[in-house]
Nucleic acid binder design. Structure first.
Lengths: 250, 250
DNA sequence: CGAAGACTTGACTAAGGTCAAGTCGGGTGG
DNA sequence: CCACCCGACTTGACCTTAGTCAAGTCTTCG
């Protein structure tokens, strides 16, 4: 279980399986070349593995290449709040790289692969590839926008609205980068994860999810959730969905 | 009340009253010169004025020069969630400038002055001043970190912990840029603002604030809050405070 | 002097938390 | 092989926190 993770390089950026997806914007050759040189290896982990720890200094900078993860913070007495979920293409550890200290942790939800970047070369990225610098800002702003919506949810939506929003949100995001061969998309989370995201107790979370399941909007599997009716979830949440358009991939 | 706001330029960046504060990092001459040319005017507003509106496209990019403001989102039925407060030096409207659409609104809490930037020249900033580009990312990451903490608060702190955290947080931030001549620092918010920030009803917010006042940790004035004992507020919230260090000012 | 907005307070209600006691399935040591 | 354990999920009973309703006071501003 706790075997040392591999950090050998497997996938060259030029053959990145993510980049061809319509979801991502096209890069110029020099950009792609730089990103490729920026990447120094890969981190392959099992579910439950800690990628980054709250409070740690000089953390690495990653991009999630495949799999699922989540960001979270905890209070001293152990209360945990999940801040957001990480999907393929998402930058991981930018706060640590830019501000110096990590104030949240990151944990894998499924088997996952991260591209490892040399944090020390980040200034070089801004200097020689302004477009990529802009892209980093773009990704940070996008994260900020997701957090805004989560904040609205926690502050002003009821339990069932929150649950509906969360599952619709994750489902829409996952569709973009995990348009699975298998039609079925399973979100690899437990009800404890949902509870810690919605700011609810596990008992109330269970009862809320059962209502959604009773209405055939979702189906709960062991440690996984299947969304059956995104449209109706969005309606319950009063949420209009993710903006269209392509995004950068670093 | 609804007179047309002035947008005439009053303060040259070279004589910016904010920049000399120890809170902000020093800029090089070329950087300062660029920022100065980047600024096209000022927006002077009264309390309650709407600076940016949710859903609007092509919004402007601003920096708050003086005064207080806040970012918020609303649900269709009018429920409002305040996302964060804006203090002097904070960038306003970056999401709109980078992602294209504004998904939150911004409103002034006090008389306020904003520096207006030419959004169209943002790419030029990244191209010719990588250091400033990095600074923009730095500011975006900082906002993200504040949102993370707010999310933890809404999801996992009790009413009194949330209130204590919020007031300690605002107080610490304000100290940095509003180290007022007058020793007293008054936060210009109503209890309705506090309620909409904490995700609580106004009645419960009132009762919670009275508890803090009864313990002499705060004093409530008409439309304003005075923090009397930050240390104890931080203790109640289980919050260790803002990181030290200087920040960029664009 | 009246109106309106900010703040208070008490009485009652409801959403959500806590406690407790399950079921079910997969993994493991004897 | 099988008993046992453990973690994920359920469910009912009861409790606490926070929401709603209602009725104030006080101050400011026309």
């Amino acid at each position: 279980m706790t075997k040392a993770p591999s950090t050998a390089r497997q996938v060259p950026c030029e053959q990145c399986p993510l980049r061809p997806l319509p979801h991502f914007r096209e890069f110029t050759d020099p950009e792609l070349k730089f990103v490729s040189s920026f990447k120094t290896g890969e981190l392959v982990v099992e579910p439950g593995a800690a990628i980054l720890i709250e409070g740690a200094h000089s953390a690495h900078l990653f991009t999630l290449l495949s799999g699922w993860a989540f960001r979270y913070k905890t209070l001293e007495d152990g209360r945990r709040q999940i801040l957001n979920y990480l999907l393929p293409g998402d930058l991981v550890g930018l706060q640590g790289s830019v501000l110096g200290e990590m104030q949240h942790s990151v944990e894998a939800l499924s088997p996952a692969v991260f591209c490892i970047f040399q944090r020390s070369r980040l200034p070089q990225l801004f200097r020689h590839h302004p477009g990529l610098g802009f892209d980093v800002t773009w990704l940070a702003s996008r994260e900020e926008r997701m957090l805004d919506e989560n904040l609205l949810s926690l502050g002003r939506r009821t339990a069932i609205e929150r649950a509906a929003y969360l599952l619709a949100f994750i489902h829409e995001r996952a569709r973009a980068t995990m348009a699975r061969q298998t039609g079925r998309l399973l979100i690899p989370i437990t009800q404890q994860h949902v509870a810690d995201t919605l700011g609810l107790s596990i008992v109330h979370t269970n009862k809320t999810l059962r209502k959604l399941a009773a209405a055939s909007l979702i189906r709960w599997h062991d440690r996984a959730c299947e969304v059956l009716d995104v449209a109706k979830l969005k309606e319950i949440a009063g949420w209009s969905g993710l903006p269209e358009g392509t995004r950068p991939l670093i």
